[in-house]
Design a protein around this nucleic acid. Sequence first.
DNA 1: CGCGCGTTTGAACGGGCTCAAACCTTGTGG
DNA 2: CCACAAGGTTTGAGCCCGTTCAAACGCGCG
Lengths: 252, 252
Amino acid sequence: MLNLQTLPLSAQWQPHCSPHALKLSNDERWSSLQELQDLLQYHGPLQGRSDGELFQRRRLKVGQSALTMGQTFDGLYVVRLGTLKTMINHADGGVHVLAFPMKGSLLGFDGIYKNTYTSDVVALTDCDLIRIPAAELFAPGRGNNHLEQMAYWACSREITQEQEAYSLTRSVKSEARVARFLQTMSQRFADMGFSPNRFILPMTRRDIGHHLSVTVETVSRAFSALVQQGIISVDFREISILSHDALRNFER
Amino acid sequence: MLNLQTLPLSAQWQPHCSPHALKLSNDERWSSLQELQDLLQYHGPLQGRSDGELFQRRRLKVGQSALTMGQTFDGLYVVRLGTLKTMINHADGGVHVLAFPMKGSLLGFDGIYKNTYTSDVVALTDCDLIRIPAAELFAPGRGNNHLEQMAYWACSREITQEQEAYSLTRSVKSEARVARFLQTMSQRFADMGFSPNRFILPMTRRDIGHHLSVTVETVSRAFSALVQQGIISVDFREISILSHDALRNFER
DNA sequence: CGCGCGTTTGAACGGGCTCAAACCTTGTGG
DNA sequence: CCACAAGGTTTGAGCCCGTTCAAACGCGCG
């Protein structure tokens, strides 16, 4: 019998992996509006000609920051490839991870108010972003109405997802938080066309802890407990979900 | 010496209070774009004629719900008067209070994605809302560009504030969470032109608990502890802040 | 190789939850 | 106007879970 655990993970079913697998060898530097719609999975009303409108790409290596707290607003970004973390660094040294943007996520909407980004966004893997300049959004009297509507829509989606993440801190038990976190990760991988049963977490235990407001040790212990109960199996960053049902029953 | 504690609170320095004080006697049922801008405190670029555009108002009594989870999107709302709570009711009976919208807050942006509101919004006091119909936002080719930009801006602000609230759950100690919550309430009252030193909380301890992810008892105990240290004084819903500095020093 | 960092596990402490009871306020109906 | 009920608030006692401190191991990288 084949032991799935020991098989090397191929780039075919993982959106990130080693920097080598992620070559970013595509030399194109521009994305069309159509690609934006595909990325965002926006199936709303399309109108008229969208040809000609091109958006610049921006590539990031692991650890590079996409946006910095305090930086003046220069537009929105849509993640084309890779995973990032959105974090707030408090003056007292405390850290809070708000979200882990992945393919199709919208970045930077917090920068419109006060014309300044309010959080740090750092690449957890090599990334490819698409920039929507502020001018495109705010240009008066242009025919870009469906770009605007799409931005509204995507922004609304980000709010919704953030609310879900916010609610995630509700659960009393840390195991339940971690279980729900794994569920959302599984769902997001599924949405991107990858396996919901087996994936590699792009973030550290510490990041997860800062996201769920618990310590590293607690996250690790929660993982161990879930393994003990046969619900998941863990090999460092690689997670296999053995029973989605059991995972779902941890919701409180 | 005058004992401030025993003085009755007058409606002059409180935005809510008894239903009697809040007469809502203004018979006008429409608000101008100018009033919207004032409410939102939007000082961005105004352009051209904004005359003629009127927005319908909607009044709520205590306990009535402004939006319901699952209800189809019918527009955005701006709070003109009163306080509400935005909450998510989980299937398992758990509750999470996302925010306490007050004068100038934007409601309903979460409804654009999926064309359905994703949270319940309930009036904690009598309220007066202004409705921005979906048609106004999405009408193609209209000259309402600065309405759109204002909506962007307000939405961005809501995201920012939600992030702050989210971060509020970061603190390890419950006393610190409550202290920070009181600070933000104080700030919001100040922004509305009321005293930052003395105000009446429009929400119950339970709501605060659901907002900060702690139990009622913990909130109550935190209040008592802050009173014990001479930082605030409490008379049921009435809060007096005796030392803003001391309150600030609880930030972790 | 050795260093740094991420991960895992253990032991002990402490803070928040749970359960319980008492008090106060508010609203309702007699 | 009072009685009563329902719900909000406060406080106490005991327990459990998550933090803290500590140590060990593995992995990647210079």
